[in-house]
């Protein structure tokens, strides 16, 4: 993240929505017609974000954290209530046409294809709108058809595509004009494992080729396989910003050992010997789960302690990965989990 050219630069970004405050029922609706009251909801509450050319950023947080709103502000769909955005030198909501040429956007939940048209008609309309020269278009299409295998989908109506097919066509549609930055809002949502793998491999290739990527997702696989930087947002604010690897090492220091015992677990004895670990039973009394901080003691020491107390038939060690980390981030009752990353 050296000081190359900043491709995306957002400072003090705020977006507020006005929501009508209505009492329930018809009476409430009628009352609202006369005395209009609104609640102000701050979806994005002051975000500073800088993304350099060539970066791959995961933008994560719980539902309603303000992720999609941020993407809509960065792409110019929404006008910010306060703050500034610049993407490749353009203010997106003020000059949408110039901005559109620099960016590509994929919304996993919603298609950008023309719903009633065959897929190839979408591509041809986009070619015309973006004024892509014929030679470039052919080159682009050949490449996308090859890596995304969308050739057979071209004559199919967009609304007849399966979710996986639609996502591949959507990716192609967003990349046809070879944008400098691609925003992906939950691009693997609802996809089966094999399609997910293909999409991720494609995105990795995209990043390797130098395209800047901002990825919104709940899927840890997406983050670990595609992104090098992770930005965590909650309640409209950035709570953490740093390399994916560092986050994993510093925050995810917990390990879990799962034992299968020959006899019911003597919980109190184990707790006495491992005072700083969390000791519980699993599905049966013979399943023992010990969770501990692996920077305080190695897994081997935990296993040896338990083996000294009870006969162990089998054991498995799980390191907490980014998955558990995100789960903890999403658990809003424990914001302390985040402070360690600071």
């Amino acid at each position: 993240m050296a000081s190359t050219s900043a491709l995306v630069e957002a400072t003090g970004l705020v977006k507020e929505f006005r929501r009508p405050r209505k009492a329930p029922g018809l009476a409430g609706a009628l009352k609202h017609l006369v005395t209009r009251r609104f609640d102000v909801h701050r979806a994005v509450a002051g975000i500073d974000l800088r993304i350099d050319e060539g970066e791959s950023v995961a933008y994560v947080g719980p539902n309603g954290a303000g992720k999609s709103t941020t993407v809509k502000l960065l792409t110019g769909i929404l006008v910010p209530t306060a703050g500034e955005v610049r993407v490749a030198g353009v203010v997106p909501h003020r000059d949408r046409v110039a901005n559109a040429r620099n960016v590509g956007v994929v919304f996993g939940q919603r298609t950008q294809l023309w719903w009633d048209l065959p897929v190839h008609e979408t591509f041809e309309l986009l070619r015309d709108m973006y004024r892509i020269p014929a030679a470039d278009y052919r080159r682009s299409m050949d490449r996308l058809c090859e890596v995304l295998e969308i050739g057979p989908l071209l004559p199919v109506l967009a609304r007849k595509l399966s979710l996986g097919q639609r996502m591949r066509a959507d990716l192609a549609a967003a990349l046809l004009h070879e944008p400098r930055i691609v925003y992906l809002d939950e691009p693997t949502i609802g996809l089966d494992v094999s399609v997910k793998d293909r999409v991720r491999a494609f995105l990795r290739q995209l990043v390797d080729d130098g395209t800047t990527v901002l990825l919104t997702t709940h899927d840890v696989g997406d983050i670990e396989e595609v992104c090098r930087r992770i930005v965590v947002v909650d309640e409209g604010r950035i709570r953490h910003d740093g390399p994916v690897g560092v986050l994993r090492d510093t925050l995810a220091s917990n390990s879990t050992v799962r034992f299968q015992l020959a006899a019911p677990a003597p919980l109190h004895l184990i707790r006495e010997r491992l005072p700083d670990a969390e000791v519980t039973t699993g599905a049966s009394e013979r399943d023992l789960v010990v969770r501990f901080d692996r920077t305080l003691r190695p897994a081997g020491a935990v296993a040896a302690t338990v083996m000294g107390l009870v006969e162990v038939r089998d054991l498995r060690i799980d390191d907490e990965g980014v998955a558990d980390l995100i789960r903890r981030l999403h658990d809003r009752d424990s914001p302390a989990a985040l402070n360690g990353a600071g």
Binding site: T75, I77, R96, A100, R101, F107, R110, Q112, M129
Partner: peptide, 14 residues
């Protein structure tokens, strides 16, 4: 349904 989003992302008058 929020479907103007995709139109606002294309370099053509909405």
């Amino acid at each position: 349904r929020g479907e103007l989003d995709r139109m606002l992302l294309r370099p053509y008058p909405c």
